[in-house]
Amino acid sequence: MVPFLACIVLFLFGLYAVLLKRNIIKIIIGFSIMEYAVNLFFAFAGFKREALAPIITDVGMVRNFVDPLPQALVLTSIVIALATTALMLALAMRIYEKYKTFDIAEIRRLKG
């Protein structure tokens, strides 16, 4: 239970950065922390103490094995996280070119 709660706490740290930091780069770092937290959570969900890798060998079937599916899912979600981080950084660069600042308090040309 403790690792799962630790993941939730880590997720909340990331959320704190996203919601309350004023610097765009720190917001993006906050997203990375949240993504790590969820990925860790997934990996823990498939973990089993003293279990083996789920590989079929000549010796025979492995009976006590770690759930491999969450690891495959985590890989997919890491790829998605890569895409979103890249897009966010690209937007941040273009915003810096236009506004000459990373401070979201000064990036306020929109009303709503």
Partner: peptide, 23 residues
């Protein structure tokens, strides 16, 4: 400038939503 700002704002909100779904 406004479009980039709106895009970033939308992305921040949307990604929080996406991560909530993933969690």
């Amino acid at each position: 400038a406004e479009e980039l700002e709106a895009g970033f704002k939308y992305m921040v909100m949307g990604e929080v939503g996406g991560l909530a779904i993933l969690l």
